[in-house]
Design a binder for these strands. Structure first.
Lengths: 342, 342
DNA sequence: GTTATTATTTTAACAGTTTCCACAAAGGCA
DNA sequence: TGCCTTTGTGGAAACTGTTAAAATAATAAC
């Protein structure tokens, strides 16, 4: 715990003054004389005084920690987001408690409960693919817990949100495939529940429409668990690849789906991009050295984490109840590499 | 903070008993009758009582949180370790505060200070590549802070440690290269400061010696920042590749170095494994789909995190001062793929 | 000598835990 | 039967370290 264990009382005793005088001196209160302040500061440094955070939190009624819920930190995108979150949180004196849902609704609820049990000042959450009912969040939000949603958001909670421009990412990616001469473009995406699925689907459809390519519903495949289970992707690919009018390109809508599709295509012996092109959302820094180098839609994870945390802290520290909420949309970027060019 | 804000006093008032009776009932003390206990439990559930962690911690003198110091969570290996840490920590009622050094000694010290300021019950740390002086840890350790070292450890602190079998990993990897017919095997490794560098180097040298291959010191290159700076690797490769007796294989000793070497070889136009073979330490799950598929030494990150956390919690919760320390060595595994076979 | 002003102390509070004590019922013993 | 001890249950108060409000003391100004 607090090693050294020097308290405000020790300083008070040492200097022969009252503990509250020490407390006030340490926070540079105007009601303490300059010489006393100097004495206290010197003594605190000498004894290596460290304030007891728990006592402060108990007294102040806050905890200076933020809860985070993501699907998996081993996902490159989310680890970038967390990196961004921590960079802001630490500099503002907040701590961060990270939890993972592994795309499970049940775990999401458990994690949220764990976080409230540990008493957090605010919550940063990206919903799991399984989540359809968000009463667990609504309740907390109504009780006054500041929440910022990022990446996978919902309209049902009115608060600040940060998302990537999924529509533009998908639209640009699909347009690129069309311009590269691909005609039958399949789309493997995540669960229908999550916001990003709908947005990316919209971008995909808009690009097709713009180029007068008829939509073939059978080319759109959903993975209820965001590609977490291999079988989802195997099934989707099985249904796409072994038919007479096989698609000539695949646009994947999630990190895990993209990389798993790549490795499955390898395994099944399909040549990319000659047999079939591949372009997908992913943040892996290895895209350049994949086989073939992988065309990818990149999301600014670090910036998303930073922005979301700034918003959350502003909610927490606001003196007046906040009623105006904003949704920040960060740009996505499409990197064209070998996997999508014949 | 604690939303709902039901306290032990509210329950006491509701039932017309004393707060201390409620406290005792909630922790199933023998000095409270069964009917009273049942009433308290029912009432607590009904009012949705959540104990205030800060008050508990203040009284008990602990914080139920663990500090973690790693170089970067975006590194696949460390995110697996953290995954393992969290799985154990949460199930044992602990929280986790994650900090990153980005391989900087200064940041390592700052992080450790931040963690003690936030008052942690124990510390899990993998040293940064820059770190040579570990007085900041020694001091805390002497004051009684339980510490478990993992991955990059030091002999200067006597405590529990968890490492991968770096020697065997390097030995087996190098042996495989030799058996595949490679004669001039270069070694690009991390900073000389860190333990894993020495162990992996030893394994590499032992394999060479075993096969009567003379050691060429000029084929061993160090990256002081573990490959964090591109220039380090560019320099190393420049010195290795453009000479008349160019090596025919490279054994890389760190995740970042391995992947960056791969991408640099691409960029410079070297064919792998025909011009030069590559095999290295990395935990990326994309190894199979890299170009070429990458032979790799894998470390059990998740298990390392789990084991380290179990050790740390046992230190924290031990009633007697622990004097017998153990170092757990987890097996590494070499996966042979295309990049190391002609 | 009274009023301001400034400096410092006292007290209480945050929420929960723990030690010590009170009280009743029950049992043991002469 | 009366007295003492034990056992079971519960309460009062002190304590964790810090802080804010109220109270008081010291000093300065008029």
């Amino acid at each position: 715990m607090n090693f050294g264990g020097v308290t405000i009382k020790d300083i008070a005793k040492e200097l022969g003054i009252s503990p509250s005088a020490v407390s006030k001196a340490l926070k540079d209160s105007h009601e303490i004389g300059e010489k006393t302040k100097a004495l206290v500061l010197e003594c605190a440094k000498r004894l290596n005084y460290q304030p007891n955070i728990n006592a402060q939190s108990l007294k102040r009624g806050n905890s200076k920690s933020l809860g985070i819920v993501v699907s998996s930190i081993a996902n490159q995108f989310f680890s970038e987001v967390i990196d961004g979150i921590e960079s802001v949180a630490h500099s503002r004196g907040y701590n961060v408690i990270i939890t993972q849902t592994h795309e499970s609704y049940e775990l999401e609820m458990k994690n949220v409960q764990h976080l409230t049990f540990r008493s957090i000042d605010g919550l940063l959450i990206s919903l799991s693919t399984e989540t359809q009912n968000i009463d667990h969040l609504k309740q907390l939000h109504q009780k006054g817990l500041p929440i910022v949603l990022f990446d996978r958001v919902t309209d049902e909670i009115e608060t600040h949100k940060v998302v990537a421009d999924n529509y533009a990412g998908a639209y640009n990616a699909t347009t690129h495939l069309i311009n590269s001469g691909y005609k039958r473009i399949a789309h493997i995406t995540s669960s229908v529940n999550v916001s990003i699925t709908a947005e990316r689907l919209k971008g995909y459809l808009a690009a097709l429409e713009q180029h007068q390519i008829p939509v073939d519903e059978s080319l759109i495949k959903y993975c209820p668990h965001g590609g977490k289970n291999l079988i989802e992707i195997e099934t989707a690919l099985g249904e796409l690849l072994y038919r007479h009018d096989r698609p000539d390109a695949i646009f994947t809508a999630a990190d895990r789906i993209t990389t798993t599709t790549l490795s499955q295509l390898h395994k099944l012996g399909f040549k990319i991009p000659d047999d079939i092109a591949l372009l997908g959302f992913t943040n892996t820094y290895l895209a350049e050295v994949l086989n073939p180098s992988l065309s990818a839609v990149f999301q600014p994870g670090f910036e998303m984490g930073k922005k979301a945390t700034e918003m959350l802290i502003s909610l927490i520290e606001s003196r007046y109840p906040v009623t105006e909420f904003e949704t920040t949309v960060l740009p996505t970027e499409v990197f064209i590499r070998a996997s999508s060019q014949r």
